[in-house]
Design a protein around this nucleic acid. Structure first.
Length: 318
DNA sequence: ACTCGCGTCTTCAGACTCCC
DNA sequence: GGGAGTCTGAAGACGCGAGT
C-alpha cells in the first residue's frame, strides 16, 4: 500500500496506518490530521499503546504547529519493539478510547515478531501459531510472494474489522470535505480487485488485460507511468520486453504527441500476446529497467499473473 | 460544462494467397 | 510472373464515463 494513500469507510472503531518514513520516526510519530479531525476529542493527552503481547507503553500526545504527535514515551516504544525505518504500524483506537492497539509489519511486508523479552505465555504461542500458518512457507528473499501473502493477511483482517479501518497516513493530507477520502477509498478497493502486491526498486506498472488489449494489438501505458516514458519520445520509440529469458522488441505509439495524451505499445504486442498465450483478465506487471550495456535502451521485465478461481487468488504464470 | 482516460470502431497499408 | 482479392496489424478517430 502506498504510504500516501487514504481510505475511509464507516467507523465505530477507528484506526490508522503509519509507515515509518519520517526522519524523526524514532522520537516522534505524527497522527494523521484526518484522524485527529474526526477523533481528536477521543485521543487522551496521555495515550497508551498496547502491543500484540499485551505490553503497554504510555506516550504523551503533543500538539506542535497544529499537528498531533506521539512524543514523550514514543521513543521507548520504538526502542523496545525494535521498530525500524519503513516499518508499517497499524493503530486501532479501542472503544473506550483508553489506548491504541498496535500491529507492526516489517519491510518484508510480514508482521514482525516482537523482541523475545516482550513476548510471553499464551500470546507468544498464538503468535507462533499464526506465523507458522504462512510465514514458515515464505522464502525471505521472495518479497513479492511475501507481499502477496501479507495482502491476504490484511484482507482477512478486513473481513472482521472492515468497519474499523479509517485511513492510512499522509501528513500533508488536508481534505476539508471528505469527498477526496471517499474517492480514494473507492479507488483503493477497486485497485485491490485488480492489482496484486509487487515491490521493485525499478518503476513498474500493472495492467489487467482487456479484450482490446488481447485482440486489439495494443496496450495502453497508464497515465501515472507516462513520466517514465517521456525520454522515449525523442528516441527511436522502441522498447524491449523480457519474459522467460527471451526478448521481444515493441514499438511505442504516441497519440496526440504534443499533449502526451496517450501512449500505446503497438508493434509487436499482438505477437507477444499470441506467443505467451495471454488471455483476458490476466494481470501483467511491467518492470522498467535500463540495459547494463546501453543506458538509453529500455527493457521491461514482464510478470504475468492469472486468476485461479480454485485458490481465489492470482497465480504467477510467467 | 469541460477535461481526461480508456475502450472500441474505422481506416489504411503491407503481407500473403490464389488464379490467370 | 503479375495482378486481384483477402487477411492482418497498426494507427487514427470517436464515444462514453468519471472526475473536476
Amino acid at each position: 500500500m502506498d504510504a500516501s494513500s487514504h481510505y475511509v469507510t464507516k467507523l465505530n472503531k477507528p484506526s490508522f496506518l503509519k509507515v515509518m518514513i519520517d526522519d524523526d520516526f524514532s522520537t516522534r510519530l505524527r497522527i494523521p490530521p484526518t484522524f485527529v479531525k474526526k477523533y481528536g476529542k477521543k485521543i487522551p493527552k496521555k495515550a497508551k499503546i498496547e502491543a500484540c503481547d499485551g505490553k503497554l507503553w504510555e506516550v504523551e500526545v503533543q500538539k506542535v504547529g497544529g499537528i498531533f504527535s506521539f512524543g514523550e514515551g514514543w521513543g521507548n516504544f520504538v526502542q523496545e519493539t525494535k521498530v525500524e525505518f519503513e516499518d508499517l504500524l497499524r493503530f486501532k483506537l479501542l472503544a473506550d478510547s483508553s489506548k491504541f492497539k498496535v500491529k507492526i509489519y516489517g519491510k518484508t511486508c510480514c508482521e514482525k515478531e516482537l523482541p523475545s523479552e516482550h513476548v510471553h505465555g499464551n500470546v507468544k504461542e498464538k503468535q507462533d501459531q499464526r506465523k507458522r500458518s504462512w510465514v514458515d512457507e515464505v522464502d525471505d528473499d521472495d518479497d513479492e510472494e511475501c507481499a502477496r501473502r501479507k495482502n491476504c493477511e490484511l484482507e482477512k483482517d478486513r473481513d472482521f474489522e472492515e468497519d474499523d479501518v479509517m485511513e492510512t497516513d499522509s501528513d500533508s493530507f488536508d481534505d476539508k470535505t471528505g469527498v477526496l477520502e471517499q474517492r480514494r477509498w473507492k479507488e483503493r478497493t477497486k485497485a485491490e480487485d485488480e492489482q496484486i502486491k509487487f515491490n521493485s526498486q525499478y518503476p513498474f506498472f500493472q495492467v489487467k488485460l482487456t479484450s482490446s488489449y488481447v485482440n486489439g494489438g495494443y496496450l495502453h501505458i497508464p497515465k501515472n507511468f507516462r513520466k517514465h516514458m517521456m525520454k522515449m519520445r525523442k528516441k527511436e520509440q522502441k522498447v524491449k520486453f523480457q519474459m522467460c529469458n527471451e526478448f521481444c522488441t515493441m514499438g511505442l505509439h504516441f497519440i496526440n504527441e504534443d499533449l502526451m495524451r496517450e501512449i500505446r505499445i503497438s508493434q509487436g504486442w499482438s505477437l507477444f500476446v499470441k506467443k505467451y498465450d495471454l488471455k483476458m483478465a490476466d494481470l501483467c506487471i511491467f518492470e522498467m529497467i535500463t540495459s547494463d550495456d546501453d543506458d538509453d535502451e529500455v527493457i521491461f521485465i514482464v510478470h504475468v499473473h492469472r486468476w485461479d478461481g480454485g485458490k481465489s487468488e492470482f497465480v504467477k504464470i510467467y
